[in-house]
Computed example of a mutant assay.
Amino acid sequence: MSDTRATSQTVRYRERLTVPWWWWPPGLGLAAVIALEVNQGVPALPVWLPFAILLPVAGVVLLLLGSTQVRVVSGDGEVEVWVGDAHLPVSVISRSAEVPRSAKSAALGRQLDPAAYVVHKAWVPPMVLLVLDDPDDPTPYWLLSCRHPDRLLSALRSPV
């Protein structure tokens, strides 16, 4: 017989790393220009067809670029950080800090450990560093884009 125990979870912090609103007009404009070029290059096609295909494709691409979600969830006495489908119990985090914008290029460049877990979105300037202390995991730290690092760190540090 399987265990069908229900777990209650509380979301302490949630953020979707969406693309900026001002990316939409150029993205859709580029799709429209390409559709116009296709119309001029292939006169046998109905005029509306390239627009009907390329504008939704541009919209889907922009939505997918901004689909990553950062969450801090508590439930069953444990707190976890979720980034997309990856998750990490807070109990294995030894230190956490905001990465200043001035240090972002160094953190992603010459100081970056190749074994680190990195979720970087160029359109989200702030980042958070989560240093791990888990002997079973070779990942030394997580480096995450986050618009509100103070809120994320506060959600991690507050008691269960």
Rank of each mutant, 00 (worst) to 15 (best):
V81H: 03
V81R: 09
V81K: 00
W82S: 12
W82E: 10
W82M: 02
V83D: 00
V83Y: 00
V83H: 06
V83E: 00
V83C: 05
G84Y: 03
G84H: 03
G84L: 01
D85S: 06
D85C: 08
A86T: 07
A86Q: 04
A86R: 11
A86N: 14
H87L: 01
H87Y: 12
H87W: 11
H87E: 03
H87F: 10
L88Y: 08
L88I: 11
L88G: 08
P89A: 06
P89V: 03
P89H: 05
P89T: 05
V90Y: 06
V90M: 05
S91F: 11
S91H: 07
S91L: 08
S91R: 07
S91W: 01
V92M: 01
V92N: 04
V92D: 07
V92Q: 04
V92K: 10
I93S: 09
I93M: 11
I93P: 00
I93Q: 06
S94Q: 13
S94M: 09
S94I: 12
S94G: 13
R95L: 07
R95E: 14
R95N: 08
R95S: 13
S96M: 09
S96H: 09
S96C: 12
A97L: 01
A97E: 12
A97V: 12
E98H: 12
E98W: 05
E98M: 04
E98S: 12
E98A: 04
E98T: 14
V99K: 10
P100S: 09
P100H: 15
P100I: 02
R101Y: 04
R101T: 13
R101M: 06
R101I: 10
R101L: 14
S102R: 14
S102A: 15
S102P: 03
S102G: 04
S102Y: 01
K104D: 08
K104R: 15
K104S: 11
K104T: 14
S105I: 08
S105Q: 14
S105D: 13
S105A: 12
S105M: 10
S105E: 13
S105T: 13
A106E: 11
A106Y: 04
A107G: 09
A107I: 00
A107H: 14
A107D: 04
L108F: 08
L108W: 11
G109I: 05
G109V: 10
G109L: 03
R110M: 01
R110W: 07
R110V: 12
R110G: 15
R110C: 04
Q111L: 15
Q111C: 06
Q111M: 10
L112N: 10
L112K: 15
L112A: 15
L112S: 07
D113L: 13
D113P: 09
D113H: 12
P114G: 12
P114E: 15
P114I: 14
P114D: 15
A116W: 11
A116E: 02
Y117E: 02
Y117R: 14
Y117Q: 06
V118L: 13
V118R: 00
V118Y: 12
V118K: 10
V119N: 10
V119Y: 07
V119T: 10
H120T: 06
H120W: 06
